[in-house]
């Protein structure tokens, strides 16, 4: 068995006096969709921040394909091949769908580094390779029909897929998704899920999905980590998670009920 792609070990995070994460281990394998779930306040968002580089842990280590990235900035992580999406839709409001992919692809290809060419107008033409790559991604996630539309006119569900497509255009090895289906209806949720599956199967991209919709995670992911009170309480395949009494307790709060029982 190969080593995991993204690993977090013994992560500790404190906010003021509150311990948000208390020695959490997390791994995500290459070419797999890994779920991260837990009740409100369990520390999912904090762990996501650690993985994406928005937060620095008090203790512990994050590594990506053998490289220590605990203190790497979001830009550096992006260049290494870690992309992410946001809980609140963060699209570039003035651009079309295609332009989202173009800018991500060109930054990846370092084509944003030639100011002089840009000023005289030689830097704006798309290359053959760029056109092909972008057309491929658009088709893969099912955005080809709306490629030339300004994103501001798209419904929320499509907007989420644009975010995923933009992440894919940076040629990532792993994409971190922060609640990709919040605010979506059942149909849109299914669209997002199939875009993720397509990207994994076709491109071999790995995903980490932080979600509140446990049902979706059970259906979509190969491996799942469950957090509660800043600790990992379960880890395993969907059927293992379903069977776990610890997980039921965390979600339904029977533990607290037992505390008061005589």
């Amino acid at each position: 068995m190969s080593a995991p792609l993204l690993t977090a070990e013994e992560i500790v995070v404190r906010f003021g006096g509150v311990v948000a994460l208390d020695g959490v281990d997390f791994t995500a394998d290459a070419r797999a969709i890994t779920g991260l779930v837990g009740p409100n306040g369990a520390g999912k968002t904090t762990l996501f921040g650690i993985l994406s580089g928005l937060l620095r842990p008090r203790a512990g280590r994050v590594s990506f394909d053998g490289t220590d990235i605990t203190r790497a900035s979001p830009q550096r992580r992006s260049r290494l091949g870690i992309a992410r999406t946001f809980q609140r839709l963060e699209l570039f409001g003035e651009m079309t769908v295609r332009e989202h992919l173009v800018v991500a692809h060109r930054v990846r290809m370092r084509r944003d580094r030639s100011l002089l060419r840009d000023l005289v107008g030689l830097g704006s033409r798309p290359t053959l390779d760029e056109d092909e790559t972008i057309a491929g991604i658009l088709e893969l996630v099912g955005l080809d029909a709306v490629a030339e539309q300004p994103v501001i006119l798209l419904p929320l569900g499509t907007g989420r897929i644009v975010e995923i497509a933009r992440a894919l255009a940076t040629a990532p090895r792993i994409v971190l998704l922060d609640e990709p289906t919040s605010g979506l209806d059942v149909h849109e949720t299914e669209q997002v899920a199939s875009a993720l599956r397509a990207a994994r199967d076709d491109r071999g991209v790995a995903f980490v999905v932080v979600e509140h919709d446990v049902e979706l995670v059970l259906e979509l992911c190969e491996a799942i980590t469950v957090l509660d009170f800043g600790r990992v309480i379960a880890r395993g395949t969907p059927s293992e998670i379903r069977a776990s009494t610890d997980v039921q307790t965390a979600y339904l709060g029977t533990r607290a009920a037992e505390d008061v029982a005589p």
Partner: peptide, 10 residues
């Protein structure tokens, strides 16, 4: 609105 479902229901 509670996450401690058992206590809330009691």
């Amino acid at each position: 609105i509670e996450q401690y479902v058992e206590r809330a229901l009691a």
